[in-house]
């Protein structure tokens, strides 16, 4: 690990001001950043410890939603009874990620900003445009079984690893930030992540020193919420494919649907195509299969991850079947 200066922030404004410098980083749970610093993939000259800032509460909003502070740990969010009753999708997704030890440290804001687990991002002996811009992408012709099939380019096929963010995407969550100049922003979570294009090292629309202070959950939409994760072992592994679905069935027809995938793209992948295919359709296996075909129409495999395309379709069908109460 490279040496760094340590600063314990006592207020948001000073924390943002410090972190506006390009080699300064915020740290909260540290479960990803410390790991990357040990490997010298991240080498900040200064860390701004934000864990003592008053951002660790979950509050009701006037609209009937919840505002989750950026420093609320993943455990605290998943065990909150309001989250469990009104947003079971989110509790399930968080509990599907990592281990209890990690969830006890990892925070809401940090989870959103964790880096990819692409093996070539971690392997400093291999080229990686995300780690060293312009060096190339070793995953393209490499062991890319865990990599993305939607929305990526030949410059970077890394997948976003979060489960929590997939559920938040289906829930239309809004990421609230404060910038060093004191200005605030409310960023729909689907717009937080930047497409890799030819600059995959720039992962979000956040500006230097801009701090996530909370995530706003709108009131839960009607319908049954289900999170389903497929992985190489039963627990404590990143998703090959995951699906967050909210299905509102009226009689035997779908009235409304929300679908987001994990493990398939540089961000949690909201599928408006699948949603459009579902709304108004009979809640049947045929409709769920049609939604899967629509969702993956533009998918492209890179060899080892070709299996993700049919797996995503089947996982969507199984998730929707469960959400429709048919299983």
């Amino acid at each position: 690990m490279k040496p760094f200066r340590y600063e314990r922030a006592s207020e948001i404004a000073s924390a943002c001001a410090s972190a506006a410098q390009p080699t300064v980083k915020f740290i909260a749970g540290g479960t990803n950043l410390v790991d990357l610093m040990k490997l010298q993939i991240e080498a900040p000259t200064q860390l701004v410890d934000i864990t003592r800032l008053p951002l660790n509460r979950i509050e009701e909003t006037a609209e009937g939603g919840l505002r989750i502070g950026a420093l609320v740990t993943n455990s605290a969010a998943a065990v909150d009874m309001r989250v469990r009753r009104r947003y079971p999708l989110l509790a399930q997704a968080i509990l599907a990620g990592a281990s209890t030890q990690l969830r006890n440290k990892a925070t809401t804001g940090g989870n959103l900003l964790q880096r990819t687990r692409c093996a070539y991002f971690y392997d400093t002996t291999k080229p990686c445009n995300k780690r060293v811009p312009g060096s190339g992408c070793a995953a393209l012709a490499g062991l890319n079984r865990m990599n993305a099939v939607l929305g990526v380019t030949d410059d970077c096929i890394a997948a976003h690893p979060s489960d929590m963010a997939v559920a938040m995407t289906a829930l239309d969550a809004v990421v609230e930030t404060v910038a060093p100049d004191g200005s605030t922003r409310a960023i729909p979570i689907d717009e937080l992540y930047r497409p890799p294009g030819d600059t995959p090292h720039i992962e979000t629309v956040l500006t230097p020193g801009e701090l996530i202070v909370s995530v706003l959950l709108p009131p839960p939409p009607a319908g049954r919420q289900v999170y389903r994760k497929v992985r190489d072992r039963a627990s404590y592994a990143f998703a090959l494919v995951s699906v967050a679905a909210i299905l509102d069935v009226d009689g035997d027809r779908v009235r409304a649907a929300r679908v987001a995938f994990g493990g398939l793209s540089y961000k949690p992948w909201r599928s408006t195509e699948a949603e459009a295919a579902l709304v108004g359709a009979l809640a049947t296996r045929a409709a769920f299969d049609a939604a899967g075909i629509a969702a993956l129409r533009n998918a492209r495999g890179y060899g080892h991850n070709d299996f993700k395309i049919p797996l995503a379709r089947r996982t969507l069908r199984a998730t929707l079947t469960q959400a429709a109460g048919l299983s």
């Binding site: 490279k2 200066r5 490997l39 010298q40 993939i41 080498a43 000259t45 200064q46 400093t124």
Partner: peptide
């Protein structure tokens, strides 16, 4: 390793 943040702090 990548030469990120190779500055005076080192």
């Amino acid at each position: 390793p990548p030469a990120v943040g190779e500055t005076a702090a080192q």
